[in-house]
């Protein structure tokens, strides 16, 4: 029963935080609400017994990416800038379009007949030991390539961040 309540709690928290990201006027409030949304999603991962992904989510998203966002907000001193809003017509159109997308996806997936074996024991695939074995055996090449991707991203960031005209 506790699982059900936790599921609803994390779901409502994630949706509330995501909506507040869009409703906040100041970018720094958006960043903080986004951190809350990421933590709620990490709670969902723990609920699903995917502990490795939960920890990586907290470290990478709630840690590294949020620090990058916070640095950018503070570096650009955006808090004093008043954000220009789009016109109400565009807002209403955007919300209607997003709602239609929601209806389409839910309608398309509603008829799916997904049947699972509901008597299985609790899965252990999300543990660090299990995922690490697979990551370093079956997925060696993508893992190494992602290292190269990070290197190229770092080089690109440094090149973009360099002052032009030096």
């Amino acid at each position: 029963m506790l699982t059900k309540y936790l599921f609803y709690f994390f779901s409502i928290l994630a949706i509330f935080a995501s909506v507040m990201v869009l409703m906040s006027k100041k970018p720094i409030h958006s960043v903080l609400y986004l951190t809350l949304a990421f933590l709620a999603i990490a709670g969902h991962f723990i609920l699903l017994n995917a502990q490795f992904i939960a920890i990586v989510n907290v470290i990478v998203y709630a840690g590294a990416i949020m620090v990058l966002f916070l640095f950018t907000v503070m570096l650009l001193n955006l808090n004093i800038a008043i954000e220009h809003q789009k016109s109400n017509l565009i807002k209403i159109t955007a919300v209607i379009a997003a709602g239609l997308l929601f209806v389409t996806i839910t309608g398309a997936t509603k008829k799916l007949d997904i049947v699972y074996n509901h008597n299985q024991v609790v899965t252990q695939i999300g543990m660090v030991k299990n995922l690490g074995k697979i990551l370093f055996s079956d997925f060696r090449l993508p893992f190494e390539v992602s290292g190269i991707l990070f290197l190229s991203a770092m080089v690109g960031t440094v090149m973009l961040g360099k002052k032009t005209g030096d």
């Binding site: 994630a14 949706i15 995501s18 909506v19 990201v21 869009l22 970018p27 958006s30 966002f69 950018t72 907000v73 955006l78 954000e83 220009h84 809003q85 789009k86 565009i90 807002k91 159109t93 955007a94 919300v95 379009a97 997003a98 709602g99 997308l101 929601f102 996806i105």
Partner: peptide, 17 residues
């Protein structure tokens, strides 16, 4: 959650958001 993200991309003008 995905639809909220789509709405955010359509509504906001701030590149960070």
């Amino acid at each position: 959650l995905f639809v909220i993200g789509v709405a955010g991309v359509l509504i906001k003008r701030n590149a960070l958001v």
